[in-house]
Write a protein that binds this DNA or RNA. Structure first.
Lengths: 228, 228
DNA sequence: CGTCTTCTTGAGCCACTTCAAGGTAAGTGG
DNA sequence: CCACTTACCTTGAAGTGGCTCAAGAAGACG
């Protein structure tokens, strides 16, 4: 088990660099100027929060990438979602987090105090509605993810690639921030199977692997066909 | 594809009995007297709403049982949740439903107009908060369900039984409203595997099958051990 | 250049699926 | 009340997709 660390320490973990001084940021959640807070830098694989911890903040990715996950007692890990710049996460928790969150690559994260969010909600019905819609969107993602887990290995990898392509700016070339192990744990497969499916998709000229983390979608129709 | 049916027709579908006259009910959602509506009877396997339909209502199970599910184009079905008396469902949808819902057995369902709910939310922050908490709870369930789908067949069946036991009143004897096929589609297994795991758990004296739909938990510790 | 991490590939295996058959229970009409 | 039907559940035998184990290749970095 990892020792509980304060935010400042977490930022240093494995990153090798001193954490950015928390600074007030012009960025704000739900387009509400009040909903802002400190921006903190997290190193690669640094824990942002752990399962079971009190949820004192809500988070937004400024730069980098984040994974949220649950682990079983025997070590099996299920990654529930990846978050890219602009994405909010850790919002759904009531009292305490029921997932852990880690930075995949060095990342800048905006932390907004939950107490601030709660205060805003009380007098701003619009923010309350958007918060609710955000959680509903997370639910939708989670259910789609559940549907993904009953598909074949090739379909899962195809779905993952299409999903990532849809979120990144460039629609056909994707830069993956995560390792094959992360992808495997997200798709409920082993690292070897992910790798094999990638080569398989390459052999069928559906994708092209420029570098292991840089993928180009060559035949979008074929990928969509695998997706249904 | 099923033809779109109005509520009255749906209730008759396969049920063989005329639908109950919609009647005002003393029942109300979130303990708010305003949040009430018509109570409607649905026959076995009757569709309550379909994926893609406008979400004009929110629902609560009065009696019976409900399944929500998604289907892939090739017919594979993933049941996302079972709902028992007292449970609300179909709440998360914004514009349209992204799951279908069916009555598993003849069921009485309370239908509350979404327009009514939206109106109440605007002037009652407490109801808004509870709605949000309800959707968050659904998200939590969905993520736990995702975690379940990476486990072994025996672990999945054990988790299902423990989950059902926790929701039914009697903690050790369970009456399952759903078929083996429903359980299989919920757990991402085949009907044969579910059946085999059931007999396996019986042989290890972990459970006892009184009738195919009536299960007694004989060794709760062993089931919990499989759950972690 | 060496070390460490990450990724790929191969060979064998196993848990679950597929296919097939039979059994059980509930309902229906004669 | 009993033959017949239908839906549901169980069990067996064979097949297979993805896993495990093992080795090596390709980068990243000091």
């Amino acid at each position: 088990m990892l020792t509980q660390l304060k935010i400042g320490q977490m930022a240093q973990m494995r990153s090798g660099v001193a954490p950015k001084q928390p600074m007030t940021s012009p960025l704000a959640l739900f387009g509400c100027a009040e909903l802002t807070g400190a921006q903190v830098a997290f190193g690669r694989n640094a824990e942002i929060y752990g399962e079971g911890e009190d949820s004192d903040f809500v988070y937004q990715v400024i730069s980098g990438a984040v994974r949220t996950y649950k682990v079983l007692s025997d070590g099996r890990r299920q990654i529930t979602a990846f978050y890219l710049p602009g994405d909010m996460f850790g919002v759904e928790a009531g009292g305490e987090h029921w997932c852990s969150a880690e930075a995949i690559v060095p990342s800048n994260i905006l932390l907004v105090r939950r107490s601030v969010l709660n205060r805003v909600i009380d007098h701003d019905g619009d923010v309350a509605r958007r918060l609710c819609a955000h959680i509903a969107a997370e639910l939708r993602h989670s259910q789609d993810h559940g549907l993904l887990l009953i598909k074949s290995a090739q379909e899962r990898v195809a779905a993952f690639l299409v999903g990532m392509a849809g979120r990144a700016r460039g629609t056909t070339s994707i830069d993956l921030p995560m390792t094959r192990q992360d992808i495997a744990d997200y798709l409920g497969l082993t690292i070897e199977t992910v790798s094999r499916m990638m080569t398989q998709l390459t052999e069928s000229a559906t994708i092209q692997i420029i570098a292991s983390r840089r993928i180009v979608l060559r035949n979008r129709a074929a990928l969509d066909e695998l997706n249904h």
